[in-house]
Amino acid sequence: MKSRIIAFVLLVSFTSMACFGQETDIPAPYRPDEFPQWTLDLRRAEIVTFGSFPLSFMVTALVYDLTYLAIDSYNYNNDSNLYDRASFASHRTQDDITRLLLISGGVSLTIGLADFIINKVKQKKAEREKQELNEQRNNNRNSTGDSETEN
């Protein structure tokens, strides 16, 4: 009896999905003017910032470990156990890891901010060039229109 009820519920569920399912209309693609420019710029800066974090963390950790190794080798100048102690990341404490995360986060934020500024400068330059081109076109139209009326 239970198997019949389960089979009936499954049959009703599957057939109702086919009958009352959503239509397969494809949504319209985004228009170029659908989002303000500042949101696009902010999204780009966010992507660059979070995308550069893994690389900046690896570089920061490498520089930190090499600095630790250099200081350790300076303190123990002729010690033969130097290379036994030089295993990377074995000396890190929780404070060191927090420091590495903060430094690499700052580096990533700087990279994102630099990309944002560079992108803004390029946009302003392109707008200025476009405006100058439009002014030149208008001047050319006016000068050809004046010469035609003079003849």
Rank of each mutant, 00 (worst) to 15 (best):
M1R: 11
M1Q: 07
S3G: 04
S3H: 10
R4E: 15
I5L: 14
I6H: 08
A7T: 07
A7M: 05
F8M: 07
F8I: 13
V9C: 10
L11I: 04
V12C: 11
F14W: 08
T15M: 03
T15P: 01
S16F: 03
S16Q: 04
M17C: 02
G21F: 00
G21W: 00
E23I: 05
D25C: 13
I26D: 06
P27T: 01
P27F: 04
P29V: 03
R31S: 10
P32R: 05
P32L: 04
P32S: 02
D33G: 08
F35K: 13
P36N: 03
P36E: 04
W38A: 08
W38C: 07
W38S: 12
T39F: 14
T39D: 09
L40N: 11
D41L: 06
R43A: 15
R44S: 12
A45M: 13
A45F: 03
A45T: 12
E46A: 12
I47C: 06
I47N: 06
I47R: 08
T49R: 03
T49L: 08
T49V: 04
F50H: 06
P54M: 05
L55M: 13
L55N: 01
S56W: 03
F57M: 06
F57E: 00
M58K: 01
V59Y: 01
A61H: 03
Y64A: 07
D65N: 11
D65C: 05
L66R: 15
T67Q: 06
Y68K: 10
Y68W: 15
L69Y: 09
I71E: 10
Y74D: 13
N75R: 14
Y76K: 13
N77G: 07
D79G: 04
D79Y: 04
D79I: 01
D79C: 05
D79W: 05
D79F: 03
S80I: 15
N81W: 10
D84R: 14
R85C: 01
A86V: 00
F88Q: 02
H91T: 09
R92W: 11
I97Y: 12
I97M: 10
T98E: 05
L100Q: 06
L100A: 02
L101C: 09
L101M: 07
L102R: 04
I103H: 04
I103K: 11
I103D: 05
S104P: 06
S104E: 01
S104Q: 03
G106E: 00
G106M: 04
T110E: 06
T110I: 13
I111P: 00
G112W: 03
G112K: 00
G112Y: 00
A114G: 11
D115M: 00
D115W: 00
F116L: 10
I117P: 02
N119Q: 12
K120Y: 05
K120A: 15
K122I: 08
K124D: 14
K124M: 15
K125V: 10
K125N: 09
A126P: 00
A126T: 03
A126S: 07
E127T: 07
E127Y: 15
E132V: 04
L133E: 13
L133Q: 11
E135M: 14
R137H: 07
N138F: 14
N139H: 13
S147T: 13
S147M: 09
S147I: 11
S147N: 08
N151Y: 14
N151F: 07
N151M: 09
